[in-house]
């Protein structure tokens, strides 16, 4: 191949990758624009603070916002310690035994299981067996299971990317393994772990199917007061509105999507803030 041809190929490849990148961003842009155009007229204080209603102009998303918020808190309270713990075990203590390889493969597979399957599991175990009913805790634990593989996989990756010199230096000073993990490996891996948190919150907050199975209600006129209270969530409300006959509800659901996106971005920005901070302190 001549030099010119090789340069041309290089150029083509570069353009192709740029094109793919830009087209996916363009699609996202079109989607967001469409949603904003249709939904912005609905988003105001009244929409955020009102209860669900059969009349589109009176309908609001208040209980759904709180439902989703509590749901995410429960999900993370369950999934974060469990997921990080499992990742530490697999990465630091698991070794290369057959069992740990078996667990390894299964965790990777779990990440690909359709979310509705988690819904069925949640219904059987949390709702019926544990008797939690159609409650915040049932929904939160179900979503927690759903994002667990994501947290385990990203945390493992983060732990693995910690330079070997750091734990070795600690060992050299006589630290025990748990001390190395807690005071050196984990703090160093924290930005990577927080990326996992961002990914899992983003996934969990938009899930509809498992929540419908677990029994999130479409009409709830109160904010949950305990973990055992019934709840509704943003995606449920959006789904409910899009399936209505009246067209005005379809554009109302666009308003709901805007709120959903904002809640997600707000929750993620907390994680992004901490990631930024830990990254800086690590480098500084």
């Amino acid at each position: 191949m001549s030099l010119r041809r090789r340069r041309l190929t290089e150029k083509c490849f570069k353009i192709a990758t740029a094109l793919i990148t830009w087209s996916s961003i363009a699609i996202l842009g079109v989607l967001v624009f469409q949603i904003l155009k249709e939904g912005m007229q609905w988003v105001d204080w009244q929409f955020i603070t009102s209860l669900p209603s059969r009349k589109a102009e009176k309908a609001g998303i208040y209980t759904a916002i709180w439902g989703s918020f509590y749901l995410m808190i429960t999900t993370m309270l369950f999934a974060l310690p469990t997921g990080i713990g499992a990742a530490i075990f697999l990465e630091e203590y698991g070794g290369k035994s057959r069992l740990s390889r078996f667990i390894d493969v299964n965790v990777a597979n779990l990440a690909g299981v359709p979310s509705i399957v988690y819904g069925l599991l949640g219904l059987a175990v949390f709702v019926n067996l544990f008797g939690f009913g159609r409650s915040v805790i049932s929904g939160g634990l179900t979503l927690g299971l759903l994002v667990l593989p994501v947290i385990i996989i990203t945390t493992r990756g983060a732990i693995r990317s910690v330079p070997k010199s750091i734990p070795q230096a600690a060992y050299a000073l006589g630290a025990k393994k748990w001390q190395v993990i807690f005071f050196h490996t984990l703090p160093y891996a924290l930005p990577g772990i927080l990326t996992g948190v961002i990914l899992s919150v983003s996934r969990a907050i938009g899930e509809t199917a498992p929540l419908i199975i677990v029994g999130a209600a479409a009409y709830v006129a109160f904010v949950p007061e305990s973990l055992l209270d019934e709840f509704t969530a943003l995606p449920i409300q959006i789904f409910n509105w899009t399936s209505r006959p009246q067209e005005v509800f379809h554009s109302l659901s666009a308003g709901g999507i805007i709120i959903l996106l904002s809640v997600m971005l707000t929750m993620n920005s907390v994680a992004i803030f901490f990631r930024h901070k830990t990254q800086r302190s690590r480098n500084g």
Binding site: L51, R54, R134, I212, A218, Y219, A221, E230
Partner: peptide, 21 residues
Amino acid sequence: EAIAEEFRSVAPRVKVIVGVS
């Protein structure tokens, strides 16, 4: 849902929950 919404003005303290499964 419409009934539950109106019921709120009659019995404001009763929590009505409607699901769609």
